[in-house]
């Protein structure tokens, strides 16, 4: 589904991302872990054609992402607050995103109903603009919006961040359910090794822009990850 070839990104002469080859097959949930500055967000931004690669390319469902519009129709994403229109209420934001994705009012409502537990009554009907929501609730809005219109590719950057424990577990369950029900390709990054091992079929460790480990998830994956990140 996602093919990366010879990908390189530099800032001021320093290489921040260098991936000679990476293939994420359709339906795989792909996890990315790495310390701050490892290049996770840079990689996701390249996947979403938000920054220009210095070398190489990324293909999504057969077409090169850069300069193309085709992938947008089947890709849902939430990286950071830059994806939220903060002067709208969550309802208005969902309406707008739904409208762009070609959903009817009924579709949108149906989609939001699926999230009623996830929102825990803190998002819908509160008469608040997104900018006045807490970080956690803003995150919920972003994630719910990314999943609108049943995308076949989902890109989430640190989705577990700033969510409360219950919501983290709900998100985990939701992603696992999604995986088993529809053929969705997921790219997820996280600082929480536990979560990533539980949600993803495959985990890559990124260090200084390079993929240094590429593991299929097994029982011992968490132990492998923990030992890698263990500090002497």
């Amino acid at each position: 589904m996602i093919h990366v070839k010879d990908l390189k990104k530099q800032y001021n002469g320093i290489t921040v991302l260098n991936i000679p080859e990476l293939n994420v097959p359709e339906g795989q949930s792909f996890g990315l872990v790495g310390n701050n500055g490892a290049g996770k967000t840079t990689f996701f931004r390249l996947v979403l054609d938000l920054i220009r690669a210095d070398k190489g390319e990324i293909q999504s469902a057969g077409t090169v992402v850069a300069g193309s519009e085709a992938w947008k129709a089947n890709t849902g994403s939430y990286l950071d607050k830059g994806f939220l229109i903060d002067f709208l209420t969550p309802e208005e934001y969902f309406d707008f995103t739904g409208h762009i994705r070609g959903l009817s009012k009924g579709d949108i409502q149906e989609h939001l109903n699926l999230f009623s537990d996830f929102f825990a009554g803190e998002v819908i009907g509160r008469k608040k603009y997104i900018r006045d929501l807490s970080m956690g609730n803003q995150q919920k809005v972003g994630i719910a919006s990314a999943l609108m219109g049943k995308p076949s590719i989902l890109v989430l950057d640190e989705p577990f961040n700033s969510l409360d424990p219950s919501t983290q577990i709900r998100l985990k369950n939701m992603l696992n359910k999604l995986k088993s029900q529809v053929k969705i390709t997921m790219l997820i990054s996280s600082h929480d090794l536990n979560h990533i091992a539980e949600v993803c079929d495959r985990v890559c460790i990124l260090e200084k822009g390079k993929i240094v480990h590429d593991i299929e998830t097994r029982e011992d994956t968490l132990a492998v990850l923990e030992s890698y990140f263990a500090v002497q």
Partner: peptide, 12 residues
């Protein structure tokens, strides 16, 4: 500008 990324990744 604060939601430009959103516009770029949306099917607009």
């Amino acid at each position: 500008s604060t939601y430009f990324d959103y516009l770029l990744t949306s099917r607009i």
